[in-house]
Amino acid sequence: MSNQTRVCSNNDFFQLLERVKRKDQIALARAITLLENEPENALSIEELYASEVNSTSSYIVGFTGSPGAGKSTLVDSYVSMLRKTGAQVGIIAVDPSSPFTGGALLGDRIRMKRHFTDDGVFIRSMGSRGCVGGLNDAIFGVIMLYKLYGFDYIIVETVGAGQSEIDIVYVADTVVLVLSPGGGDEIQLMKAGIMEIADIFVINKADMDGSDLLKVNLEAVLKFSEQEKSIVLTVATSGKGVAELAEKIESHKFFLKDSGEIEARRLRRLRKHAETIITRRVRTLLDDEKDLNGKVSEFVERIVSKLCAS
Protein backbone atom coordinates (compact mmCIF):
# COMPACT_ATOMS: atom_id res chain seq x y z
CA MET A 1 0.00 0.00 0.00
CA SER A 2 2.75 2.42 0.92
CA ASN A 3 4.77 2.21 -2.26
CA GLN A 4 3.93 3.84 -5.52
CA THR A 5 4.29 0.69 -7.64
CA ARG A 6 1.32 -1.03 -6.08
CA VAL A 7 -0.89 1.91 -6.96
CA CYS A 8 0.23 2.08 -10.56
CA SER A 9 0.94 -1.55 -11.38
CA ASN A 10 -2.66 -2.20 -12.20
CA ASN A 11 -2.71 -2.27 -15.97
CA ASP A 12 -6.30 -3.44 -16.04
CA PHE A 13 -7.27 -0.31 -14.22
CA PHE A 14 -5.65 1.93 -16.85
CA GLN A 15 -7.47 0.16 -19.63
CA LEU A 16 -10.74 0.47 -17.75
CA LEU A 17 -10.22 4.21 -17.37
CA GLU A 18 -9.87 4.63 -21.13
CA ARG A 19 -13.15 2.79 -21.58
CA VAL A 20 -14.84 4.85 -18.85
CA LYS A 21 -13.90 7.95 -20.81
CA ARG A 22 -15.75 6.47 -23.78
CA LYS A 23 -18.85 6.03 -21.59
CA ASP A 24 -18.60 2.26 -21.20
CA GLN A 25 -20.78 1.34 -18.21
CA ILE A 26 -19.35 -2.15 -17.75
CA ALA A 27 -15.88 -0.62 -17.45
CA LEU A 28 -17.16 2.05 -15.07
CA ALA A 29 -18.70 -0.61 -12.83
CA ARG A 30 -15.50 -2.70 -12.84
CA ALA A 31 -13.35 0.33 -12.07
CA ILE A 32 -15.57 1.18 -9.10
CA THR A 33 -15.08 -2.34 -7.74
CA LEU A 34 -11.31 -1.97 -8.03
CA LEU A 35 -11.53 1.35 -6.19
CA GLU A 36 -13.68 -0.14 -3.46
CA ASN A 37 -11.18 -2.91 -2.94
CA GLU A 38 -8.23 -0.53 -3.06
CA PRO A 39 -9.20 3.15 -2.63
CA GLU A 40 -5.66 4.28 -3.44
CA ASN A 41 -6.33 3.43 -7.08
CA ALA A 42 -7.85 6.92 -7.12
CA LEU A 43 -4.29 8.25 -7.33
CA SER A 44 -3.94 6.66 -10.76
CA ILE A 45 -6.98 8.57 -11.99
CA GLU A 46 -5.52 11.79 -10.65
CA GLU A 47 -2.18 11.02 -12.27
CA LEU A 48 -3.55 10.23 -15.71
CA TYR A 49 -6.71 12.23 -16.09
CA ALA A 50 -6.33 15.21 -13.77
CA SER A 51 -7.24 17.69 -16.50
CA GLU A 52 -10.30 15.73 -17.65
CA VAL A 53 -11.53 15.24 -14.11
CA ASN A 54 -10.96 18.86 -13.12
CA SER A 55 -12.46 20.38 -16.23
CA THR A 56 -15.81 18.62 -16.10
CA SER A 57 -18.73 20.58 -14.81
CA SER A 58 -20.28 17.62 -12.97
CA TYR A 59 -22.26 18.99 -10.06
CA ILE A 60 -22.32 16.95 -6.85
CA VAL A 61 -25.50 16.86 -4.77
CA GLY A 62 -25.45 15.02 -1.44
CA PHE A 63 -28.53 13.58 0.25
CA THR A 64 -28.30 12.71 3.92
CA GLY A 65 -30.73 12.13 6.78
CA SER A 66 -31.95 9.48 9.16
CA PRO A 67 -32.84 5.92 8.09
CA GLY A 68 -36.28 5.77 6.52
CA ALA A 69 -36.58 9.54 6.04
CA GLY A 70 -37.06 8.95 2.32
CA LYS A 71 -33.64 9.77 0.88
CA SER A 72 -33.65 7.10 -1.85
CA THR A 73 -37.24 7.80 -2.87
CA LEU A 74 -36.46 11.51 -3.00
CA VAL A 75 -33.35 10.86 -5.08
CA ASP A 76 -35.49 8.77 -7.42
CA SER A 77 -37.96 11.65 -7.87
CA TYR A 78 -35.23 14.26 -8.22
CA VAL A 79 -33.45 12.17 -10.86
CA SER A 80 -36.67 11.98 -12.90
CA MET A 81 -36.74 15.77 -12.77
CA LEU A 82 -33.12 16.01 -13.94
CA ARG A 83 -33.69 13.52 -16.75
CA LYS A 84 -36.39 15.78 -18.20
CA THR A 85 -33.62 18.31 -18.87
CA GLY A 86 -31.57 15.62 -20.59
CA ALA A 87 -28.89 15.66 -17.90
CA GLN A 88 -26.94 12.44 -17.37
CA VAL A 89 -26.91 11.32 -13.76
CA GLY A 90 -24.56 9.11 -11.75
CA ILE A 91 -25.77 7.95 -8.34
CA ILE A 92 -23.74 6.53 -5.47
CA ALA A 93 -25.89 5.08 -2.68
CA VAL A 94 -24.15 3.98 0.49
CA ASP A 95 -25.65 1.57 3.02
CA PRO A 96 -24.01 0.24 6.19
CA SER A 97 -21.69 -2.78 6.21
CA SER A 98 -21.91 -5.13 9.16
CA PRO A 99 -19.16 -4.46 11.68
CA PHE A 100 -19.29 -8.16 12.53
CA THR A 101 -19.29 -9.97 9.19
CA GLY A 102 -18.46 -7.21 6.71
CA GLY A 103 -21.60 -8.15 4.81
CA ALA A 104 -24.21 -5.63 3.76
CA LEU A 105 -27.75 -5.45 2.49
CA LEU A 106 -27.75 -2.72 -0.11
CA GLY A 107 -31.36 -1.69 -0.52
CA ASP A 108 -31.37 1.84 -1.92
CA ARG A 109 -31.58 0.74 -5.54
CA ILE A 110 -35.01 -0.79 -4.90
CA ARG A 111 -36.48 2.76 -4.66
CA MET A 112 -35.06 3.76 -8.03
CA LYS A 113 -36.55 1.06 -10.27
CA ARG A 114 -37.89 3.37 -12.91
CA HIS A 115 -34.35 4.35 -13.88
CA PHE A 116 -32.94 0.81 -14.21
CA THR A 117 -33.14 0.67 -17.98
CA ASP A 118 -32.38 4.33 -18.62
CA ASP A 119 -28.85 4.56 -20.04
CA GLY A 120 -28.65 8.17 -18.83
CA VAL A 121 -28.73 7.03 -15.21
CA PHE A 122 -26.06 4.93 -13.51
CA ILE A 123 -26.77 3.65 -10.02
CA ARG A 124 -24.13 2.10 -7.80
CA SER A 125 -24.73 0.77 -4.31
CA MET A 126 -21.81 0.67 -1.87
CA GLY A 127 -21.30 -0.76 1.59
CA SER A 128 -19.74 1.61 4.14
CA ARG A 129 -17.00 -1.01 4.78
CA GLY A 130 -15.98 0.12 8.22
CA CYS A 131 -16.11 3.88 7.58
CA VAL A 132 -18.09 5.76 10.19
CA GLY A 133 -18.73 9.14 8.57
CA GLY A 134 -21.75 7.97 6.57
CA LEU A 135 -19.81 7.27 3.38
CA ASN A 136 -16.92 5.04 2.27
CA ASP A 137 -13.25 5.89 1.65
CA ALA A 138 -13.62 4.96 -2.00
CA ILE A 139 -16.21 7.68 -2.57
CA PHE A 140 -13.69 10.31 -3.66
CA GLY A 141 -12.30 8.01 -6.32
CA VAL A 142 -15.76 7.01 -7.52
CA ILE A 143 -16.61 10.69 -7.94
CA MET A 144 -13.49 11.10 -10.07
CA LEU A 145 -14.62 8.15 -12.19
CA TYR A 146 -18.08 9.68 -12.58
CA LYS A 147 -16.46 12.94 -13.68
CA LEU A 148 -14.28 11.11 -16.15
CA TYR A 149 -17.39 9.42 -17.53
CA GLY A 150 -18.94 12.86 -17.82
CA PHE A 151 -22.12 12.79 -15.74
CA ASP A 152 -23.76 16.20 -15.48
CA TYR A 153 -25.01 15.47 -11.98
CA ILE A 154 -23.45 13.19 -9.39
CA ILE A 155 -25.76 12.26 -6.55
CA VAL A 156 -24.33 10.85 -3.35
CA GLU A 157 -26.71 9.30 -0.85
CA THR A 158 -25.24 8.59 2.58
CA VAL A 159 -26.10 5.76 4.94
CA GLY A 160 -29.00 6.59 7.23
CA ALA A 161 -27.26 9.30 9.20
CA GLY A 162 -27.81 10.17 12.83
CA GLN A 163 -26.18 13.21 14.31
CA SER A 164 -22.48 12.95 13.62
CA GLU A 165 -22.16 11.24 10.24
CA ILE A 166 -21.21 14.38 8.39
CA ASP A 167 -18.60 13.32 5.82
CA ILE A 168 -20.99 14.28 3.02
CA VAL A 169 -20.05 17.92 3.68
CA TYR A 170 -16.54 17.12 2.43
CA VAL A 171 -17.89 15.53 -0.73
CA ALA A 172 -20.94 17.38 -2.05
CA ASP A 173 -21.32 20.83 -3.57
CA THR A 174 -24.86 21.06 -2.25
CA VAL A 175 -25.89 19.11 0.85
CA VAL A 176 -29.58 18.26 1.19
CA LEU A 177 -30.66 17.10 4.65
CA VAL A 178 -33.84 15.02 4.57
CA LEU A 179 -35.96 15.22 7.71
CA SER A 180 -39.34 13.71 8.38
CA PRO A 181 -41.99 14.28 11.06
CA GLY A 182 -41.63 12.33 14.28
CA GLY A 183 -37.90 12.88 14.62
CA GLY A 184 -38.09 14.69 17.94
CA ASP A 185 -38.59 18.21 19.23
CA GLU A 186 -36.77 21.48 18.51
CA ILE A 187 -33.90 20.58 20.84
CA GLN A 188 -32.91 17.92 18.31
CA LEU A 189 -32.82 20.63 15.65
CA MET A 190 -30.55 22.80 17.82
CA LYS A 191 -27.87 20.17 18.24
CA ALA A 192 -24.50 20.43 16.57
CA GLY A 193 -23.40 18.06 13.83
CA ILE A 194 -25.62 17.12 10.96
CA MET A 195 -27.92 20.15 11.39
CA GLU A 196 -24.96 22.41 10.65
CA ILE A 197 -23.95 20.93 7.32
CA ALA A 198 -27.14 21.27 5.29
CA ASP A 199 -27.51 23.81 2.50
CA ILE A 200 -31.11 22.82 1.90
CA PHE A 201 -33.50 21.26 4.40
CA VAL A 202 -36.21 18.93 3.14
CA ILE A 203 -39.17 17.97 5.26
CA ASN A 204 -40.25 14.80 3.54
CA LYS A 205 -43.50 12.92 4.22
CA ALA A 206 -45.05 16.38 4.42
CA ASP A 207 -48.48 14.79 4.17
CA MET A 208 -48.00 13.33 7.64
CA ASP A 209 -48.99 14.86 10.96
CA GLY A 210 -46.29 16.94 12.54
CA SER A 211 -44.70 18.31 9.39
CA ASP A 212 -46.06 21.84 9.94
CA LEU A 213 -44.72 21.91 13.49
CA LEU A 214 -41.37 20.62 12.27
CA LYS A 215 -41.28 23.46 9.72
CA VAL A 216 -42.06 26.11 12.35
CA ASN A 217 -39.40 24.72 14.69
CA LEU A 218 -36.87 24.48 11.89
CA GLU A 219 -37.53 28.07 10.78
CA ALA A 220 -36.97 29.26 14.34
CA VAL A 221 -33.66 27.42 14.58
CA LEU A 222 -32.47 28.57 11.15
CA LYS A 223 -32.96 32.23 12.06
CA PHE A 224 -29.62 31.99 13.85
CA SER A 225 -27.65 30.75 10.86
CA GLU A 226 -25.47 33.17 8.90
CA GLN A 227 -26.61 32.13 5.46
CA GLU A 228 -30.21 31.98 4.48
CA LYS A 229 -31.17 28.34 4.09
CA SER A 230 -34.19 27.00 2.30
CA ILE A 231 -36.74 24.59 3.64
CA VAL A 232 -38.68 22.51 1.13
CA LEU A 233 -41.69 20.34 1.93
CA THR A 234 -41.92 17.19 -0.15
CA VAL A 235 -43.86 13.98 -0.50
CA ALA A 236 -41.24 11.89 -2.30
CA THR A 237 -43.59 9.01 -3.10
CA SER A 238 -45.90 11.27 -5.11
CA GLY A 239 -43.25 13.70 -6.33
CA LYS A 240 -44.93 16.64 -4.59
CA GLY A 241 -42.49 19.47 -3.87
CA VAL A 242 -39.66 17.83 -5.78
CA ALA A 243 -39.74 20.44 -8.56
CA GLU A 244 -39.26 23.11 -5.91
CA LEU A 245 -36.37 21.12 -4.42
CA ALA A 246 -34.76 20.92 -7.87
CA GLU A 247 -35.12 24.70 -8.21
CA LYS A 248 -33.55 25.31 -4.80
CA ILE A 249 -30.64 23.06 -5.71
CA GLU A 250 -30.16 25.02 -8.95
CA SER A 251 -30.19 28.36 -7.16
CA HIS A 252 -27.71 27.07 -4.60
CA LYS A 253 -25.54 25.92 -7.48
CA PHE A 254 -25.63 29.41 -9.00
CA PHE A 255 -24.92 30.97 -5.62
CA LEU A 256 -21.84 28.75 -5.17
CA LYS A 257 -20.56 29.54 -8.65
CA ASP A 258 -21.31 33.24 -8.34
CA SER A 259 -19.63 33.63 -4.98
CA GLY A 260 -16.64 31.46 -5.87
CA GLU A 261 -17.55 29.24 -2.92
CA ILE A 262 -17.66 26.25 -5.28
CA GLU A 263 -13.88 26.36 -5.62
CA ALA A 264 -13.51 26.37 -1.83
CA ARG A 265 -15.70 23.29 -1.65
CA ARG A 266 -13.65 21.57 -4.34
CA LEU A 267 -10.47 22.22 -2.37
CA ARG A 268 -12.13 20.98 0.80
CA ARG A 269 -13.01 17.76 -1.04
CA LEU A 270 -9.44 17.30 -2.32
CA ARG A 271 -8.01 17.91 1.15
CA LYS A 272 -10.33 15.39 2.72
CA HIS A 273 -9.46 12.88 0.03
CA ALA A 274 -5.74 13.35 0.73
CA GLU A 275 -6.43 12.94 4.45
CA THR A 276 -8.28 9.65 3.96
CA ILE A 277 -5.39 8.30 1.89
CA ILE A 278 -2.91 9.25 4.60
CA THR A 279 -5.11 7.85 7.36
CA ARG A 280 -5.46 4.57 5.54
CA ARG A 281 -1.70 4.36 5.05
CA VAL A 282 -1.08 4.99 8.72
CA ARG A 283 -3.63 2.36 9.62
CA THR A 284 -1.91 -0.12 7.30
CA LEU A 285 1.45 0.67 8.90
CA LEU A 286 -0.06 -0.01 12.31
CA ASP A 287 -1.67 -3.22 11.09
CA ASP A 288 1.68 -4.35 9.70
CA GLU A 289 3.36 -3.57 13.01
CA LYS A 290 4.17 -6.94 14.49
CA ASP A 291 2.13 -7.97 17.53
CA LEU A 292 0.44 -4.58 17.84
CA ASN A 293 -3.03 -6.09 17.80
CA GLY A 294 -1.88 -8.74 20.25
CA LYS A 295 -0.47 -6.10 22.56
CA VAL A 296 -3.63 -4.02 22.41
CA SER A 297 -5.90 -6.92 23.27
CA GLU A 298 -3.53 -8.00 26.03
CA PHE A 299 -3.75 -4.47 27.46
CA VAL A 300 -7.56 -4.48 27.17
CA GLU A 301 -7.72 -7.80 29.03
CA ARG A 302 -5.47 -6.47 31.78
CA ILE A 303 -7.74 -3.45 32.35
CA VAL A 304 -10.88 -5.58 32.26
CA SER A 305 -9.54 -8.07 34.79
CA LYS A 306 -8.45 -5.23 37.08
CA LEU A 307 -11.89 -3.66 36.92
CA CYS A 308 -13.54 -7.03 37.51
CA ALA A 309 -11.35 -7.70 40.53
CA SER A 310 -12.08 -4.40 42.25
Binding site: S97, S98, G102, G103, A104, L105, G107, I110
Partner: peptide, 14 residues
Protein backbone atom coordinates in the same frame (compact mmCIF):
# COMPACT_ATOMS: atom_id res chain seq x y z
CA UNK B 1 -30.31 -11.62 4.69
CA UNK B 2 -28.49 -14.94 4.97
CA UNK B 3 -25.88 -13.97 2.40
CA UNK B 4 -25.39 -10.65 4.20
CA UNK B 5 -24.64 -12.58 7.37
CA UNK B 6 -22.15 -14.68 5.42
CA UNK B 7 -20.19 -11.48 4.75
CA UNK B 8 -21.41 -10.75 1.24
CA UNK B 9 -22.65 -7.45 -0.18
CA UNK B 10 -26.20 -8.12 -1.31
CA UNK B 11 -28.05 -5.80 -3.65
CA UNK B 12 -31.75 -6.47 -3.36
CA UNK B 13 -33.86 -5.08 -6.17
CA UNK B 14 -37.27 -6.29 -5.11
Amino acid sequence: RGLRDAGMEVIYTG
